[in-house]
């Protein structure tokens, strides 16, 4: 389950905005009571105030988590810079995990790019280090989807040695086991975080991890590693 930061509804309720809201409603109500064409003036003014001073700023703050009072264009420009800096800083770590999870480097790169793109499209509010977990989550989802559609035989069963070249010891694991092992051993996520990220029960994550380690131990003992 990939979760972006929650909406901060509280940021919508600012004193100035509440005053403007009351004033806009009063203007609309007053215009409604005036039984002639002059009633249209306060109604239009009230609607404009309601839109420009209340609703759009509220969307700006709540839905996208932008800093209050900053223009949209500047916010978007700053966001691109922030995302670029954070992604660059996390590139090595994420590319490592991607190539550990995915045997094919080209596929790993494509899936990681897709994760970055979705993250930059979905992330709400200021860019924080927590974006790493979200990017990993999106990558894992993409990988699982890719595995299901491109290599259906790998959905649950470990890859057979004949079908896939043994590029990595992890190739002997099922995709789920492989994801759990990489996220735990290399991404250094806790089991609880992995359970949340994969949408699995914690017991299942533990079981997958134990099974994966047992498989790796057997492979090592048999000399295939």
């Amino acid at each position: 389950m990939c979760n972006v930061p929650k909406r901060n509804w509280r940021s919508a309720f600012q004193p100035k905005r509440l005053i403007a809201f009351v004033a806009a409603l009063a203007a609309i109500g007053a215009g409604w009571q005036i039984p002639n064409a002059f009633g249209l003036i306060p109604m239009c003014l009230g609607a404009v105030v309601l839109l420009m001073a209340i609703l759009l700023p509220a969307v700006h703050d709540v839905e996208f988590g932008f800093p209050s009072g900053v223009k949209l264009s500047a916010t978007l420009q700053d966001r691109a810079e922030e995302l670029r800096a954070v992604f660059e800083g996390q590139r090595r770590d994420l590319e490592l995990c991607a190539n550990l999870i995915c045997d094919e480097p080209a596929t790993a790169a494509i899936l990681l790019e897709a994760a970055w793109a979705k993250t930059s499209a979905d992330w709400r509010g200021p860019v924080t280090p927590g974006i790493r977990v979200y990017t990993l989550c999106v990558f894992v989802n993409r990988f699982m989807s890719h595995t299901q559609w491109v290599h259906p035989q790998q959905r649950t069963e470990p890859q057979s040695q004949e079908a896939v070249p043994a590029l990595s010891p992890l190739a002997t694991l099922s995709p789920n086991e492989r994801v759990v092992v990489v996220l735990h051993e290399f991404a250094e996520l806790s089991l609880a975080e992995i359970a949340t990220l994969t949408g699995s029960a914690l017991a299942d994550v533990i079981h997958l991890l134990q099974h994966a380690e047992a498989s790796l131990a057997r492979s090592r003992a048999s000399g295939s590693l």
Binding site: L83, R84, E88, R91, N99, P105, A108, A117, S120, A121
Partner: peptide, 17 residues
């Protein structure tokens, strides 16, 4: 493998943004 096949952050950012 990552060095040989680096991800393109700019392309991802372009699409995402």
């Amino acid at each position: 493998r990552a060095i040989s096949h680096p991800g393109d952050i700019e392309r991802a950012l372009t699409v995402g943004l």
